Amino acid sequence: MLSCPSCESKHTVKNGRIHNGKQNYRCRDCGRQFVQDPQNKLIDQATKDLIDKLLLERLSLAGIARVTGVSELWLQRYVNAKYAAVSRRVSVKREKKGRLTIQCDELWSFVDHKGNKQWVWLAIDAKTREIVGVHIGNRSEAGATALWQSLPPVYRQCAICYTDFWAAYAAVLPSKRHRAVGKESGLTNQIERLNCTLRQRISRLVRKTLSFSKKVDNHIGAIWYFIHHYNASLPV
């Protein structure tokens, strides 16, 4: 009979199996649950650093688990904590008041099923190519308002805003500084190119994917995680 590792009682019974199929035991005296000859695998910092980089590429969590040799359960918990800690505000270099130009667009996505649409609203500085505004939600005027409010104050005060003809922009953006244009004008080409980059680098945004998010918080966290990396990697 196995002894309890906590109280050393021999009054133990089998209590199902753990996630990897190993026999689980329970002590009837103190209630401690345990397995025989536990072999907990500690994840070193080098593996965590590699995972942080792989999260920025178009890989599913199952793929990352296969590459790094960690369990999917551990990886999901690690990712949940990482995405929860990601800031939901853009960090951009300070711009002086003057002639600023931004391009805005929306990117379709979904969570859990395609009926649960989530739109990624983006604003990019046409000169520096920094992402200066972000909102993830529906495609209503409320979404356009949230995008506008996410912009740093200097952009809300000075920037000329180029968008497509989606009506929500006209309802929210200042009319004197809003320019609705078609793709043929080339005045929204940078934000359109950014949309392609996001779909190429974030597996959750691929149009036909099995790597979709099941939780809105993780969906938003994954996008913000990439956005911070994208801005930090731009040349000074």
Rank of each mutant, 00 (worst) to 15 (best):
L61D: 12
R179L: 00
P152H: 02
A222G: 05
N189T: 11
V172T: 12
N116L: 10
G133C: 02
A222R: 00
L54N: 05
C7K: 06
E184L: 04
A65I: 12
H19E: 07
K22P: 00
T101A: 10
V90A: 01
S203M: 08
R32H: 15
H229A: 14
K93E: 01
C4K: 07
E141M: 09
H178K: 03
L55M: 06
A126I: 05
K41L: 14
A171Q: 12
W74Q: 03
R199A: 11
T188H: 03
S60R: 07
H229L: 03
A168D: 03
K215D: 14
R193T: 14
T163E: 04
C158T: 11
I191K: 05
H229V: 05
R88N: 06
N195A: 07
D125N: 11
L54H: 06
L42C: 13
Q33E: 15
S185Y: 00
I64W: 09
S140F: 01
A144F: 09
K53L: 08
R199D: 07
L122Q: 09
S6V: 12
Q103C: 08
S213T: 03
N116K: 15
W148F: 11
K214A: 04
V172P: 06
H135S: 09
R88Y: 08
V206T: 13
R201T: 03
L50I: 06
L151M: 00
C196A: 13
K41I: 15
A171Y: 01
A85C: 08
S109K: 02
M1K: 12
G137L: 04
C30N: 12
D217E: 12
H229R: 08
V13K: 15
D44E: 08
G31M: 13
S203E: 04
T12S: 05
A170S: 14
R201W: 04
Y83F: 15
A62S: 15
I160M: 13
A65F: 08
S175F: 07
N40Y: 14
D44A: 07
W224S: 04
D164E: 08
R179G: 04
I102S: 02
R17F: 09
I131F: 10
L55E: 08
R66C: 08
A222F: 01
L2K: 05
C104R: 00
C161S: 09
K96S: 02
E130M: 05
W108R: 06
R156D: 14
S9C: 04
L205Q: 01
H178Q: 11
Y83R: 13
R201A: 04
Y78A: 10
R88D: 14
G31R: 11
V86M: 01
C27A: 11
T101Q: 08
Y230D: 07
K48D: 02
A222M: 03
K14N: 11
E95T: 01
E95I: 00
S109I: 07
S91G: 01
L55Y: 06
F165I: 03
H113T: 12
L187Q: 08
P152L: 00
A146Q: 14
R32G: 01
C104T: 15
S150R: 01
P38E: 09
K215A: 12
K14F: 10
V154Y: 01
K10V: 02
K22S: 00
L234I: 06
I223G: 02
L210Y: 13
G16A: 08
S175T: 10
I51N: 13
T12I: 10
